[in-house]
């Protein structure tokens, strides 16, 4: 390994792309955000019934939910994306067509991306919900039963609000992973942050500069999320703020693990 004598770093190019991003670049950032948020939201919504199915007394439901998790957790997202987008179309099963919502068009590739991200995420969120529900003290179920609450009422009023607190930290990890793995969507032609950076790189060959800019954008997005997560945890811990120490870590410490 040797350092190249004269620095080729183009500071002006780097700075211009960082502070004056072009419109199409910001559109790509926005695409990254809405696909990550959409994938996480739908994945979380689907994960809950999956967790319920795993906990059910019906063996068929348990097996079906287990099978689902086995498939989606056991295969790479990249492969899943190609099967759902290109694969389905090639096999003549389903073709994702652009949908026009008036103000904005959701491309076929973005739809395939959203569906795949959500279905894959559901498998992970299902496990997280299952563990969180299982972590609630048995006495809570018994107390709810003893005042006549039916199982679903118990779940909704007593168990899930408590499980939510347990879910947030791992959910935060999931969402950070989600934000970063949207870069894989480039392979099915979704013009997100990574794809756009690649395109710029192909034109300008300023690899170090443009991917450093991209990295800083990813860092910004994950940092904003850390703040949001901190806020959510504080809200959920209102009832026992004194008891919950982790929620009182400040955002810097949460992100870096460094106390200051």
């Amino acid at each position: 390994m040797s350092l190249i004598g004269s620095s080729q770093f183009d500071g002006h190019y780097f700075w211009e792309h960082l502070v004056h991003p072009q419109g199409f670049f910001l559109t790509a950032v926005w695409t990254t955000i809405y696909l990550a948020v959409g994938g996480q939201v739908f994945g979380t919504i689907l994960g809950l019934p999956l967790a319920m199915a795993r906990r059910s007394s019906n063996r068929l439901l348990v097996s079906a939910a287990w099978f689902y998790s086995w498939i989606w957790r056991g295969t790479p997202l990249l492969v899943q994306l190609l099967i759902v987008d290109v694969g389905l179309a090639e096999a003549g099963i389903y073709r994702w067509n652009d949908i026009n919502f008036g103000l904005f068009t959701l491309s076929g590739a973005a739809q395939a991306a959203l569906v795949t991200l959500a279905l894959a995420e559901a498998a992970y969120m299902g496990e997280i919900f299952r563990a969180a529900i299982g972590a609630i003290d048995r006495g809570q179920w018994e107390a709810a039963k003893s005042v006549g609450m039916a199982p679903w009422t118990t779940m909704r009023l007593v168990i899930l609000p408590q499980a939510a607190r347990v879910v947030v930290p791992p959910l935060g990890n999931e969402f950070i992973t989600m934000l970063k793995q949207t870069s894989l969507l480039s392979v099915i032609g979704v013009t997100e942050l990574f794809r756009t950076s690649s395109d710029i790189n192909s034109a300008d060959f300023k690899t170090f500069e443009i991917f450093t800019v991209a990295a800083l954008w990813y860092l910004l997005l994950t940092s904003v999320w850390a703040l949001v997560q901190h806020w959510i945890e504080r809200r959920l811990a209102r009832s026992e703020r004194a008891v919950v120490a982790t929620a009182d870590k400040d955002p810097f410490e949460r992100l870096t693990g460094i106390a200051h």
Binding site: Q140, A143, K145, S146, V147, T153, L157, S239
Partner: peptide, 30 residues
Amino acid sequence: RRDIGMVFQRFNLFPHMTALENVTAAPVHV
């Protein structure tokens, strides 16, 4: 079970509800 009240050794109050909410949850939702 509505007609049978039970008090547990470990209280088993709902920790995310205030004292009043603990008392009113079942009358309201059941």
